[in-house]
């Protein structure tokens, strides 16, 4: 029996994970942490095995109080860290504090913590560099996007990922980094979801890259397996659906409009300013030209994770209704 701390518990993935952990007989207690007030967080029965706390992880003192307060008292052994800003256009020091510094503090404090023995970080496929000369099918050894011109959204994700990787094997606490495919759903931070969340999806003519998308259900399964597993490492977590971008647009029910490549970026910039859409074509341009598909062999072999839940496409329907 273990007790688990889940940060970012009020995000769609966090909420689903907490619900699943509470139902898991191997879990003694779940300590859920989020920014929302308790009365509006986690809209399901809390029971005695779940505690929700409102904590701002952007403040180092609050993290210390959390880890050496409720976390120690409840004997939490595993931390699942999901708390990151998911909006591309969010930037600044407070965003960085939440995205990177919070993780750094948790890692440092975990080293001398009496009960924490394992940390699971949900990272992102966006940390990988997409380039002409690089493979489409991406393993965990693939180069990361360390471009200084990358926006803070990418830089923070890469820095958090590397911060966790840098401590692997050196700390008493086991560290697992899951580089997850984006979960196609609202509030998950999926750029593809924002891209499709419009009747018309503009894309560069002549390019139809392969993309891989996951569901919240699959990401939660991967997080659970990492929570209960042993050992450490970096793992790609691909989704069930691998398909061309045009097919993705069609199945989503949007109308794909191919345009000459140089026209797409300014039009999406215009859309951002006019409608406040969070989709950034600049961040996704290379992926929408050359594609990126996560290779999940390592997660399959070590964690026993296999994507099983297809996206419930509005048009065309899922290929398999049941998990394979």
């Amino acid at each position: 029996m273990i007790s688990v701390l889940v940060t970012g518990a009020t995000t769609p993935i966090g909420e689903r994970l907490v619900r699943s952990l509470v139902a898991d007989t191997r879990v003694e207690h779940v300590l859920a942490v989020g920014l929302e007030p308790p009365e509006s967080a986690l809209p399901f029965s809390h029971g005695k095995r779940l505690t929700y706390l409102r904590v701002d992880l952007g403040r180092e003192r609050r993290i210390r109080e959390l880890l050496f307060g409720p976390v120690r008292d409840l004997g939490v052994q595993v931390v699942v860290h999901l708390a990151q800003y998911d909006r591309v256009h969010a930037q600044g020091r407070s965003v960085h504090a939440q995205n990177v510094e919070a993780l750094r503090s948790i890692l440092e404090l975990s080293d001398r913590h009496p009960t924490i023995r394992r940390l699971v970080l949900k990272s992102y496929a966006e940390v990988y560099r997409v380039s002409l000369e690089l493979p489409v099918l991406v393993t965990e050894d693939h180069p990361l996007n360390l471009s200084p011109s990358a926006p803070q959204y990418i830089r923070d994700r890469v820095e958090a990922d590397l911060t966790a990787c840098a401590r692997m094997g050196l700390a008493d606490c086991e560290i697992v980094v899951l580089r997850c495919a984006e979960a196609l759903g609202p509030g998950t931070g999926s750029q593809l979801y924002d891209f499709l969340d419009s009747p018309i999806a503009l894309r560069a003519a002549g390019f139809d890259p392969m993309i891989n998308v996951a569901t919240i259900a699959d990401i939660v399964v991967a997080l659970e397996k990492a929570t209960h597993g042993s050992g450490e490492g970096v793992f790609n977590v691909p989704g069930y659906d691998t398909l061309p971008l045009s097919e993705c647009i069609r199945k989503w029910g949007a109308y794909g409009v191919p345009l000459p490549g140089p026209m797409v970026l300014p039009l999406y910039e215009l859309r951002h300013w006019a409608r406040g859409s969070d989709f950034s074509y600049g961040i996704n341009r290379r992926r929408m030209h050359y594609g990126l598909v996560l290779d999940g062999n390592r997660a399959h072999t070590v964690l026993g994770y296999t994507p099983s839940f297809p996206v419930d496409w509005p048009i065309g329907g899922p290929i398999h209704k049941e998990p394979r």
């Binding site: 489409v136 099918l137 392969m210 659906d241 097919e247 598909v293 297809p310 290929i319």
Partner: peptide, 10 residues
């Protein structure tokens, strides 16, 4: 087949 009639490379 990666699930939609394409392999991972397209």
């Amino acid at each position: 087949d990666a699930g939609h009639g394409y392999d991972a490379f397209g």
